[in-house]
Simulated assay, not measured.
Amino acid sequence: MSEPRNTAPDAPRPATRTVGAPRFPGGPAADPAGSHHERRIRSFQPRRSRVTTGQGEALRRLWPTWGMDIDGHRVLDLEELFGGLPVVLEIGFGMGEATAQMAADDPGTGILAVDVHTPGQGNLLALAERNGLTNVRVANGDAIILLREMLPPRSLDGMRVFFPDPWPKKRHHKRRLVQPEFLDLAAGPLKPGAVLHCATDWEPYAEQMLEVLQAHPDFENTVPGGGYAPRPSFRPLTRFEGQGLDKGHLVHDLLFRRTRREA
C-alpha cells in the first residue's frame, strides 16, 4: 500500500541571489571591474567570512553615500569627493579600526580606503557613522585598477600600505603588492613630496620593500642614511600588529617620499 501524499502547502523557499549580484542591494558589487577580463596576477585573496547584522545594515544604508566600486570606467574627482581636503589612499584596511582612528585624529585629511573584504567595509562604514567621521570613503575592488584607471595624476597627498599579504611561500612572491610595477603605478597619482608609507611584520617582505623602494627613481627614503623608519605616532597599533608582536615579530615601517623628478 503506497504512503499518502503530503498535501500540505510547500514552505516558502529563501530568495536566491543571482551569480555576480551584490550581496547587499545598493552596496558593494561582487565583481566591480569584471575580474574575468583582468589577466594579471592578483596580489590579494578575497576572504569569505560572515557579515554581521550591523555590518550589513551599514552597507545597505551608507554605501550609496560613502562607498564606491572600483570599476575602471571613470576618473574620480577627489576634490569634489572630499570637499577639497588633501587625500591619502589606504590600500587594505582590514576591519577598519586603524583607519577610523587615523581619520578621527586628522579630520583635515580625507582617507580613500580600499579593500575587498565585505565585513571590513561594513565595519568601517559603521565606525565612521558612529564617530561622526565625514572624511572617509570606502572603495571596493582592486587597488591596481584604481591607480591605473581612476586617479588623476598628482591627485594624492599620501599613500598607505599597512600589513599587506606577505605571500610567504617562494612560489607566491610574485603576488606581493609592493613590486617595481606597483611603484610605477603609485608614482603617477602621488604629488611630489607625498609619502608612501608601508608597514609589515614579515621580515623577508620588509627587506624586499626596502630594496625595491630604494631602487626606484621616483621615491627617496625619508630616513637620513636610509633604512627603516620608527613607527610614526599617527599609525595606530592595531590588534593584528599586537598579535604579531606577541609572537616575536618585528614590525618595519618604510616612509618614502615621491621625488620631484619629471617623467
Rank of each mutant, 00 (worst) to 15 (best):
T7E: 06
P9R: 15
P14K: 07
R17H: 09
A21F: 02
P25S: 13
P28W: 10
D31A: 14
A33S: 11
I41G: 02
R42I: 04
P46G: 07
R48V: 07
R48Y: 06
E57I: 11
A58P: 06
W66H: 13
D71S: 14
R74Y: 08
L76I: 05
L76P: 00
P86K: 02
I91C: 08
A98R: 06
A100L: 14
Q101L: 13
D106R: 06
G108D: 10
L125E: 03
R130N: 01
G132K: 05
V138H: 06
V138R: 09
A139Q: 02
P152F: 13
P153V: 15
G158E: 03
G158M: 05
F162D: 00
F163R: 08
P164S: 06
K169R: 15
K169S: 06
R171K: 15
V178F: 01
P180Y: 13
F182P: 02
L190K: 05
P192F: 08
G193Q: 10
H197C: 07
A199Q: 12
A199I: 05
T200P: 07
P204M: 10
M209L: 02
V212C: 10
P217S: 11
A229I: 03
R231N: 03
P232V: 13
S233C: 05
P236Q: 05
Q243M: 14
H249K: 10
H249R: 10
H252E: 03
F256Q: 04
